[in-house]
């Protein structure tokens, strides 16, 4: 990934503008080259099923193709905006899963965590990913798990309370404390967000 400097960001904005104004398929293909692996990694992590993850990525890129003009820099960088579309699509799919499929998706995540116990703290090639992973790794396990279920699992507060067999208020408290701590840990503007 080359999301480090202003030149790359300008290029990504230009590509998005070419999609919005000129309906240029080559520009979308280039955005796919830049974001495809990140999008698929996110969808696969959330859904645990390669086929459904591919559907989500395909739908997300098609939405970019149709709605590139709706992007505003006020809403963060191009990559963040795009990944939020992938996240939204994946949550939509998760909610259509039956309870067993959803559980399987979460078990898939659990297996990943077991096989790679240092998943949050591993040294990532991407500095930004490393910084965010380290911040997540500094959270108490119960807060990290709650954030994981809420963000990557798409579960509501009450669903998390049922899954973890804890009071609803505890779920809300863990989420709030975890996010506040993350906010403090990541207070330094991220490289990509700051330059976009």
């Amino acid at each position: 990934m080359t999301e480090g400097g202003p030149a790359e960001h300008e290029s990504e904005l230009e590509l998005l503008a070419a999609v919005a104004r000129e309906r240029d398929p080559d520009a979308l293909a280039r955005l796919y080259d830049l974001y495809g692996s990140q999008a698929y990694g996110l969808a696969l992590r959330m859904l645990g099923d390669s086929g459904v993850a591919e559907e989500v990525v395909q739908e997300a890129f098609f939405r970019v193709w149709r709605n590139a003009g709706s992007y505003s820099q006020d809403r963060g960088g191009v990559r963040s905006w795009f990944l939020s579309i992938v996240h939204h699509q994946a949550v939509d799919k998760l909610r259509r899963f039956n309870s067993k499929q959803r559980l399987d998706a979460q078990l898939g995540l659990a297996e990943q965590a077991v096989q790679r116990p240092d998943v949050w703290g591993e040294v990532a090639a991407d500095l930004e990913r490393q910084r965010i992973s380290q911040a997540l790794g500094e959270l108490p396990a119960e807060q990290r798990t709650t954030i994981e279920l809420a963000y990557f699992g798409g579960y509501s507060h009450s669903e998390i309370a049922n899954l973890l067999r804890i009071p609803l208020g505890t779920v809300k408290g863990r989420l709030r404390l975890g996010m506040d701590k993350l906010r403090a840990l990541l207070a330094e503007p991220a490289m990509d967000l700051a330059s976009e």
């Binding site: 990140q38 963040s80 992938v86 906010r183």
Partner: peptide, 28 residues
């Protein structure tokens, strides 16, 4: 802003080559 950073904690996974073909087929 913090929530928008969470997806970037996930390591990229290269999808099958066919996925790009499907995406571009729909676009074309």
């Amino acid at each position: 802003r913090v929530a928008s950073m969470l997806p970037m904690s996930v390591p990229p996974v290269p999808p099958r080559d066919e996925l790009k073909h499907h995406v571009m087929a729909r676009v074309y």
